[in-house]
Design a protein around this nucleic acid. Structure first.
Lengths: 231, 231
DNA sequence: CAGTCTGGTGTGGTCAGACCACAGAGTCTA
DNA sequence: TAGACTCTGTGGTCTGACCACACCAGACTG
């Protein structure tokens, strides 16, 4: 058997065997094609897939940013997949939100057991930046999403963190559109800021149950508000 | 801007707009290339990505299975991404297991509230098939994995179900290798069967806490056993 | 007439070879 | 010495071709 699948399997086995790792470069496309006995077009199809999965980054020219480099961006790959399946309407938005609530409530519980985690400090700093008065909805939402990912990261599970970031990517566009439709954005923003602070306080005081309750109410509440105004 | 990204964005927007849906066919590659003003090679790169994401399936020849058809296999796409990132060692196996425990314990809680869900009946039937005496480890694990996915599906969240199935795909190979290393597989299998039954009983009797505890012990226990014998 | 064979047609899979823009490294020149 | 220059290797794209495949309609055969 040959073809594009062979290239994928080859790269995956190189990764598994440790002969290829994050930061290293793949052979040039022409070289890889020759080594594996396939055409360059076939190699390119495989590399495109790796790129879409967030496993590899390609750059033209020469120098350190050129060539095809192994990276580790699981959120990018998962996010792209989720976004596409959201587009097919087989993954309901409500279920995405349900997954978010599950991960976040679980994560703040775990984070409450380690209130000194550096990601919590990062979360606090994000909240400070969200207080800037001249923030538009786009920038606000970006910081908002980063805050939630930071909360998740504080729990220390890389898979959950990647999935949260992926959910954020997948939902991003939709939330932005939804925010446009809200009757009084600035008032909502005030409420969100208050809720964020109260969640973080609960985590940092080590109160797992309270933190979980608050983050659940926060996420579900915003989702309900946004659904109500976007039909 | 043009190129492969343009093809991806075009297909995604067709999906979003509803002009393209699950079961329908994409235009032929040559046709798509002409419509979008790019070469067929470029179109193919985009279609490969969609294929890897589980959004599309391609078949040669003619007839209903030929051409490029929109499907909905989120688990396939997510699973491929997880597997690759597992290979880069940036997603620790322990975290994958942690995510599994989170999803499954959450799901059995939800499923316990609706003990008549058809997926629970399916789960029960899978357990019956796992009692067959002449089952090898491979077939056993396949049914095992299906059982856990069915449990998750009974909670009714499509995203969680897809992630569970993806985790299963990503871990499959590793678990099979691990099972080979176990000192007494048949004895482990007996224990797993017993635990499966007890989990399902707890769910069907509506006891959410008990079901969650049992499934957590079950998954973590197997993981510990397998780590112990594979270093 | 019923059954079988045989091209025709359109599909994805792969290949070979070419040209482009790009970015760094080295070289030449004023 | 500072600037402009060519050289080289990278990914990005295009063109045109051939293949295997599977259906389908028509011709052929008994």
């Amino acid at each position: 058997m040959s073809g594009y699948g062979a290239v994928l399997r080859h790269v995956e086995s190189e990764l598994t065997a440790g002969r290829l790792g994050v930061g290293q470069q793949l052979p040039a496309e022409r070289r890889l094609a020759e080594d594996l006995g396939v055409s360059r077009a076939t190699v390119r199809e495989a590399i495109r897939v790796l790129q879409a999965m967030g496993v590899v980054r390609s750059g033209v020219g020469s120098g350190p940013d050129a060539g095809t480099t192994v990276i580790a961006d699981p959120a990018g790959g998962l996010g792209a997949a989720l976004r596409l399946h959201l587009a097919t309407r087989r993954l309901p938005m409500a279920d995405l939100v349900g997954t978010r609530v599950m991960i976040e409530s679980h994560s703040v519980r775990a984070a409450a057991a380690a209130p000194d985690h550096p990601d919590l400090a990062r979360a606090a700093e994000l909240l400070t930046r969200m207080d800037a008065p001249d923030l538009d909805a786009d920038a606000f939402h970006q910081l908002d999403a980063d805050f939630h990912v930071a909360l998740t990261a504080a729990a220390g599970n890389a898979v959950n963190t990647a999935i949260m970031a992926a959910l954020r990517d997948a939902i991003h566009r939709t939330v932005l559109d939804a925010v446009q439709a809200l009757p009084d954005w600035s008032r909502t923003a005030v409420r969100l800021r208050r809720e964020h602070r109260s969640i973080l306080r609960a985590v940092q005081s080590g109160n797992a149950d309270l933190a979980a309750t608050r983050v659940t109410r926060h996420v579900e509440g915003f989702h309900r508000e946004w659904v109500r105004h976007s039909t």
